[in-house]
Amino acid sequence: MNWEQLTDVVHQEGRQLVVQHLELVGISLFIAIAIALPVGILITRPPFNRWAPQTLAFLNTAQGVPSLAVVAIFLPIMGIGRIPSLFALTVYALLPIARNTIAGIEGVDPDVMEAARGMGMSPRRVLARIELPLALPVVIAGIQTSAVLTVGTATLAHLIAGGGLGRLIFSGISMHRPEYIIAGSLMTAALAILIDQAVGLIHRWISARYSG
């Protein structure tokens, strides 16, 4: 093991790699939430619920295809670098969020909804005041899973000139340097846990506002 060389690399490039990684994860996760959350909500209510099976089939397809295959197929159109990386990461983050949004909303006790409607609340108000707050823990769990998944998958961006911490891990693999793999994996894992905690904090902040 050659820890000195690793220290050099981390010292010279570590910051940049972490920043690149965070950008990839942050942007794609933000877009994924902005898409999957509304879509998840929409397909739980008429008239859009007719499209629920197709939507989920599409998301399953997207999740099932290995990310590098997606990138390779789109290479002539999207090229290499950050754009295809962000695209692939966003597509990957959609399914856990959408699935949990749907499961969360559908899990709301029908009696509670009945009561709310009985009080004369509009469907929109029922959604905002009853369904979403009650579904929130499950929705957040989906976002947390997506976040961790994205942090891990973002290491692959390195393979198509997208930057990020994959640099350490894949150098380690091709050069037979376990210390690179360990360092890269630990930094990735640390980011994953950090982002997971951050989403948890946001969850608590939202719950506090709702109940307060």
Partner: peptide, 17 residues
């Protein structure tokens, strides 16, 4: 300097990336 996986360098060069 753009990093990529081994087999991709040929495709990237062909596509003018």
């Amino acid at each position: 300097v753009r990093f990529m996986t081994t087999g991709l360098t040929y495709g990237a060069l062909r596509e003018g990336q």
